[in-house]
Amino acid sequence: MKKLVFLFTILGIGIVFSQKKQEIKSPAEGKSLVYIIRTKEAFLLNFRLYDKDKYLGAIGCNQYIVYECDPGEHLFWAVSENRSFVKADLKADKAYVLIIEEKMGVFIARVKLVPLDPRSNNSKKYKRKFYRAIKNDIPIVYTKENVDVDKSVNIKQGL
């Protein structure tokens, strides 16, 4: 019995120390940082994300976007069967989290952007999702070269 307890203790310690660490970045001086994560209900779909007239990329399951930008007014939006919009006034040297909630739609999933607000009733649920995404998912760091795709027609139709 003592050997069994010892074995489980060693295995437990090994599992705890082998887990990936959560690396949450800070924005560069004078910039804002936005993390965009998914809730993973519609795991087979990608959602296209925009910051007003700038295409940020498509986010698939087990991915999240890290977007560093200038502070100020931003209009984030996502597209699927519908469109979801979030206006944000980003402050310099701050990090923000946008959560993409997926719900089943008529033909494909519907999308809803939800800003993580630490004061809301759902903040614990969303914080867990955020930390789980940062720990387990693959980051897509936004750069203009990553998404050098002409999406002007989509942007015109979406706005």
Rank of each mutant, 00 (worst) to 15 (best):
K112S: 13
F85Y: 05
Y55N: 00
G57Q: 00
G72P: 05
F107N: 13
L98K: 09
K87Q: 11
Y67G: 07
K52W: 10
V114T: 09
A95Q: 11
W77A: 01
C61F: 15
E101R: 11
V97Q: 03
I65R: 02
F85T: 11
H74R: 05
D70E: 12
K112C: 06
A58S: 13
V111T: 13
E68L: 02
K91G: 09
S84A: 02
S80N: 08
K52E: 14
C61P: 03
D51L: 02
I100Y: 06
D70T: 07
Y67D: 03
F47Y: 08
Q63I: 09
C61D: 15
L45T: 14
K112L: 05
N62M: 14
R83N: 04
I108M: 01
E102Y: 09
F85L: 12
P71W: 01
K103W: 12
A78N: 00
N46S: 15
D70V: 01
R83G: 00
A78L: 11
N82C: 13
Y67F: 11
D89W: 05
D51P: 01
I59T: 01
I59M: 03
K52L: 15
L98I: 09
L90S: 06
L98R: 04
P71N: 07
D51V: 04
P71L: 10
V114G: 08
Y96D: 12
G105D: 00
P71F: 03
K112W: 03
A95G: 09
G57Y: 02
K91A: 15
F76I: 02
L98T: 05
D51R: 07
C69T: 13
L75Q: 11
C61I: 15
K54W: 13
A95I: 08
W77Q: 04
I65W: 12
Y96M: 05
D51G: 04
L49D: 04
H74V: 02
D53W: 09
K103T: 13
E81W: 08
V114R: 00
G72Y: 03
V114E: 05
F76K: 10
V106G: 13
G60Q: 05
E73H: 14
M104N: 03
I108R: 07
N82H: 08
N82A: 03
K87N: 10
A78S: 10
D89N: 15
K112V: 12
Y64C: 09
V111L: 03
I99T: 09
C61R: 14
K87M: 11
R48L: 09
Y64T: 05
L45R: 14
